[in-house]
């Protein structure tokens, strides 16, 4: 228990450390003495390239992991996450469609993304409710796979018909942060901060909903209303992040499991741990993505999977052994 009590401060320190490392390390060697003098190349690299990129990785880590946590709690299904139930691909298809019709209108991108995610969600829930009971079976996941396939096909179609759209968004389908700028982060950042605050306000209700609809109802709550709110907040988070990170998937699935494992399951603490663990995972992946094969780079999503998958398998095995 003692090490668990220390886990939040330790993770907070780790976030700051990885954030710093991500600013300092890279193909171009940074002279910190020069970096704070306006107009020097070091200054431009630090503040116009690495800072927005690191911030983007940080924000995406927060958004996808909190989104995954809210989805898992709302659906009562440990496998739901924004990439698996079609939210990310819905948002992604909407982003690409929007960009091919209105190139350059970055401020409205989060709205388009949210609409895409909402359409995907509506489809998933309709299919799942027609094919079986939500949460209790694999029907939600199966519906998610179907909707994912649909929107991934849409993404491929848009990018084949209009290749220019996708070149601005390299590595969109696995997720990455190359050439992220402050201007494309501003609106999503505000949405993410507000949504995370909402998640904190909802955290005690998240604990109640985990006890099932019968107990939640007897405590006076309306489970269907709560689940809908949680899913919508999850959609806001994931769709905002998709606008600048692409379809970075795995973090949303794995972080809630890591967080739950560390925190002992309590809602607020699990949320707090997710907020720290998600960014560590994403920032590390991005750091590896742009340093391992310098001066070239890989999409961060590749390393996300490389770090996340073995840990996820470890958690699954551990859980099955009680």
């Amino acid at each position: 228990m003692a090490e668990r009590r220390l886990s939040v401060p330790a993770l907070a320190i780790l976030v700051v450390l990885v954030f710093m490392l991500s600013l300092v390390l890279g193909w171009a060697k940074l002279d910190l003495g020069q970096a704070f003098i306006q107009g020097t190349p070091d200054n431009i690299i630090l503040f116009s390239v690495r800072l927005p990129r690191t911030l983007a990785a940080f924000l995406a880590g927060v958004a996808f992991s909190v989104s995954g946590l809210l989805l898992q709690r709302a659906t009562g299904n440990d496998l739901s996450s924004p990439n698996i139930i079609g939210m990310n691909s819905g948002a992604g298809a909407a982003v690409l469609l929007f960009l091919s019709f209105f190139p350059g209108h970055f401020r409205l991108l989060p709205l388009a993304a949210f609409l895409g995610a909402a359409i995907a969600l509506a489809l998933v829930f309709v299919i799942a409710s027609l094919s079986g009971r939500l949460g209790t079976s694999g029907s939600l996941i199966l519906a998610g796979i179907a909707v994912n396939a649909l929107f991934n096909a849409a993404i491929s179609t848009i990018s084949s018909l209009d290749p220019d759209t996708l070149t601005a968004y390299s590595a969109f389908s696995v997720g990455g942060f190359a050439s992220v700028q402050f201007s494309s982060l501003a609106v999503p950042a505000v949405i993410i901060i507000v949504s995370v605050a909402a998640a904190f306000l909802l955290s005690s209700i998240i604990d109640v909903i985990r006890l099932g609809d019968e107990i939640a109802s007897s405590m006076g709550y309306r489970p269907a209303v709560i689940r809908t709110i949680l899913v919508l907040v999850a959609a806001l988070l994931a769709s905002s992040a998709v606008t600048f990170s692409g379809l970075l998937g795995f973090v949303g699935l794995v972080t809630p499991h890591i967080a739950s494992f560390i925190s002992g399951g309590e809602g607020r603490k699990t949320l707090l741990v997710s907020i720290f663990a998600g960014p560590v995972l994403v920032m590390l992946s991005d750091l590896l993505a742009r340093t391992v094969i310098m001066p070239s780079e890989l999409p961060a999503g590749v390393f996300m999977a490389a770090i996340g998958v073995p840990f996820f398998i470890y958690l699954l095995i551990r859980r099955s052994r009680g």
Binding site: D207, R210, L211, G212, E214, I215, S217, S218, S260, G264, G265, E266, G267, R319
Partner: peptide
Amino acid sequence: HSLLPQLLPQSDISVRCL
């Protein structure tokens, strides 16, 4: 009303938290 349901939820939540 307070309910003790027949089918109890499956969860890894701690007793203290519950």
